[in-house]
């Protein structure tokens, strides 16, 4: 990657991370830091595709998962997907949940 592209990316990042209201923060503002990828640089999952056990050929037995049971419905979230997205916005049996890692 050449220097111009790096500079452009840095500028774009700087623009993206502005814009949150911090004046009423309940934690010290000075401790809210920018770090890592910019806003939405890690894309959250908003429209998760959920499949049955029989369609889970992408899973290996030792793969870690985060599992929940809501109103009797069990659902698993592979850590290898959460690694790339940080948060999955899902709904189970009418209950909206956020799965984070």
């Amino acid at each position: 990657m050449d220097a111009i592209r790096v500079l452009t990316l840095l500028l774009a990042s700087a623009l993206f991370i502005t814009g949150f209201q911090l004046d009423n923060a309940i934690i010290p503002r000075s401790e809210i830091l920018s770090g890592g990828p910019p806003k939405d640089g890690i894309p959250a999952i908003l429209d998760p595709r959920i499949v049955d056990l029989g369609d889970a050929g992408f899973m290996y037995p030792d793969d870690p998962v985060i599992g929940v049971v809501i109103n009797g419905q069990a659902r698993a979230y592979p850590v290898k997907i959460l690694n790339w997205h940080e948060v999955v916005n899902d709904t189970i049996e009418g209950v909206p949940i956020a799965v984070t890692f």
């Binding site: 998760p48 049955d52 899973m59 049971v69 069990a74 659902r75 592979p78 997907i81």
Partner: peptide
Amino acid sequence: PSHRTTWRFWSARHPQTRILSTRTGFDRNY
């Protein structure tokens, strides 16, 4: 309440479980 465990353990304990697919709409190598 949530559980962190392996796919082996979770799918054995919850045979009816459903699971988040790697077909997320994003081009990532999971």
